[in-house]
Design a protein around this nucleic acid. Structure first.
Length: 571
RNA sequence: CGGGGUAUAGCGCAGCCUGGUAGCGCGUCUGUUUUGGGUACAGAAUGUCGGGAGUUCGAAUCUCUCUACCCCGACCA
């Protein structure tokens, strides 16, 4: 391909509204252009990258026995009403009406369509299991689209849905999909991690997220150095500290603590170790608890896990922190002076808190704390639960090794749906006794467009993108110097271009009449992995210059050997 | 939707406070120059100053209003 015929439009300056590096580089390298909020056009070079990701996903899905279909992007409201999601989904579901005033939505996902399809197509258990997938455009009317293609409203997703007679059969396909996902991200050349995920109301262990590791990621991923345990921090269990609670060694006493509204101030002003401090958080109580508010206790240096908190029967979901006015009217003191001693509302203590002794906590009197507090002696131990986020260095919940935390970008999700849709939509097959059985379902998604952005977040340098080999829009770029003046350079460039193309190498010839520096900068920005420079100087010496995008010095390669040299690099 | 901010040439920005009819850098076009890291010089084109209304002799600038976009929160592939 020649640049003169495959237009490249790079930007020298970073557009002001691009926040994250992948968005900036995708705009600068001319891979995408914004059409409207959350809507992007994929430009020629970007589309090549996208197609490569799709091809790998398609191949691995096919290899794993999934069958490709293509469902409509526009979906009739009746199916969503049948599943109950027409009401549940909210404004993220883009609803439209046709000329007959019939209601439709632009599909954000396809459970309804596939379930409807399968209940019609499948009659017998003998037809199971099946696994259908598609690679298709989805639309979710996100409240706040951002980060370019990372969280856009329209995006391309590979979604697969499997149907089974038994849980064992589902597990088998689930495991196959899990393995296929691992192969996909390995082949894409990404550093990734499958992690156990929160699977909400469905229950069971049937949900894993696949995260591309990148410091700019929005999720915290927890993993163990002593086992293959990995989980989203939302889900990672914080174990109770080992050993028994130390015996009290101090008497409880009230201390005047002016200007001490934070844990840090308490530690600094009173030389109290942070491990001896307690944070008291007041949240709204659930209707069935009978109380209006609940106090949650975590150690001073620990962070409340909102999902774990919401799962407590006493706590209202979604979680809502009490306002400062509410706190004052219930507790008689403001935030910064709160604690479990003489607490007028129900209390739940984190496991770590339950194991503390001689600790300090607010006295529920403005500017006073109690120090030397001990459970059992000074106040009864409240209900204990896992309330906090794990921290790096915590023991792994499976008992093997300690935990580390890294940031990740969620690019895939495998999920055991069970009968959630098949039951409400009455998708059954006849079993061997001729009895109707509700099918069990699994679903498996990959955010194809997001994968492209995530790959950049993980692979870039000052000059631009560093594509993994499998994703680069071209493998080799030819940069001829002074092509318009030097007949020899022009001929050599054309000849090499023809030669590499004939050898099946994806090659891009930069035949623009530009200065070398500008061309180098463009190819580096675009992240083409291999570069061959053709110059009069080199040709006279019978050689071409080769340089890899990722590090390494430029080297001279005899012209006659360039093909085999590149083939070795590309292998 | 709540809170904060921005809107001036393709991109990045100045001008606005203190009204006088729009500018800089990059890019684009023409010519010359240069040719191993975004070359230099000369010339040129490009704006309903986000839309509408108002104040004024006169509005990018002041007032009102609408719209779009960005950032922080809930959502998610």
């Amino acid at each position: 391909m020649r640049v003169s015929q495959f237009p490249l439009s790079t930007l020298r300056e970073t557009p002001a509204d691009a926040e994250v590096i992948s968005h900036q580089l995708m705009l600068r390298a001319g891979l995408i252009r914004r059409t409207a909020s959350g809507l992007y056009t994929w430009m020629p070079y970007g589309l090549r990258v996208l197609r490569k990701v799709e091809a790998i996903v398609r191949e691995e899905m096919d290899n794993a026995g999934a069958i490709e279909v293509l469902m409509p992007a526009i979906q009739p409201a009746e199916l969503w009403q049948e599943s109950g999601r027409w009401e549940q989904y909210g404004p993220e579901l883009l609803r439209v009406k046709d000329r007959h005033d019939r209601e439709f939505c632009v599909g954000p996902t396809h459970e309804e369509i596939i379930t409807d399809l399968m209940r019609k197509e499948l009659n017998s258990y003998k037809q199971l299991p099946v696994n259908y997938y598609q690679i298709q455009t989805k639309f979710r009317d996100e409240i706040r689209p951002r980060f370019g293609v990372m969280r856009s409203r329209e995006f391309i997703m590979k979604d697969a849905y499997s149907f089974h007679l038994t849980q064992e059969s589902l597990q088998e396909t689930y495991d196959k999909m899990y393995a296929a996902y691992c192969r996909i991200f390995e082949r894409l050349g990404l550093s990734f991690r499958p992690v156990a995920a929160d699977n909400g109301s469905i229950g069971g262990s049937g949900s894993h997220e696949f995260h591309v590791l990148a410091s700019s990621g929005e999720d915290d991923i927890v993993f163990s150095d002593g086992s293959d345990y990995a989980a989203n921090i939302e889900k990672a269990e914080a174990l109770a500290p080992a050993g028994v609670r130390p015996a009290p060694s101090q008497e409880m006493h009230q201390v005047h603590t002016p200007n001490t509204k934070t844990i840090q101030a308490l530690v600094d002003n009173f030389k109290l170790p942070v491990e001896k401090t307690i944070k008291t958080l007041i949240v709204e109580a659930s209707a069935e608890s009978g109380a209006k508010f609940v106090a949650l206790l975590v150690r001073g240096d620990h962070e409340l896990n909102e999902i774990k908190a919401e799962q407590q029967p006493e706590v209202a979901a979604p979680l809502r922190m009490a306002t400062e006015e509410e706190v004052r009217s219930i507790m008689g003191a403001g935030p910064g002076s709160l604690g479990p001693v003489n607490c007028p509302i129900p209390v739940i203590a984190d496991r770590t808190v339950a194991a503390m002794s001689d600790f300090g906590a607010g006295a529920n009197i403005e500017d006073y704390h109690f120090f030397g507090v001990n459970w059992g002696r000074d106040l009864p131990l409240p209900r204990v639960a896992d309330l906090r986020n794990v921290k790096a260095g915590d023991p792994s919940p499976d008992g093997k090794g300690t935990l580390s935390i890294v940031r990740g970008i969620e690019v895939g999700h495998v999920f055991q749906l069970g009968k959630k849709y098949s039951e409400t939509m009455n998708a059954t097959v006849l079993d061997e006794n001729g009895k109707a059985q509700t099918m069990i379902m699994g679903c498996y998604g990959i955010g194809v467009t997001r994968v492209v952005a995530a790959a950049i977040e993980q692979n870039y340098d000052e000059a631009g993108i560093l594509w993994p080999k499998a994703m680069a829009p071209f493998q080799v770029s030819i940069v001829p110097l002074n092509m318009r003046k030097s007949e020899a350079v022009a001929q050599a460039a054309e000849a090499l271009h023809t030669q590499l193309q004939a050898a099946g190498i994806e090659v891009l010839l930069d035949d623009r009449d530009m200065r070398p520096g500008a061309m180098f900068a463009d190819h580096e920005l675009m992240g083409i992995p291999h570069r061959v420079v053709i110059s009069d100087r080199g040709l006279q010496a019978g050689s071409l210059e080769y340089k890899a995008r990722k590090g390494g010095e430029a080297e001279q390669v005899p012209s006659a050997e360039i093909l085999s040299f590149l083939q070795a690099k590309l292998a």
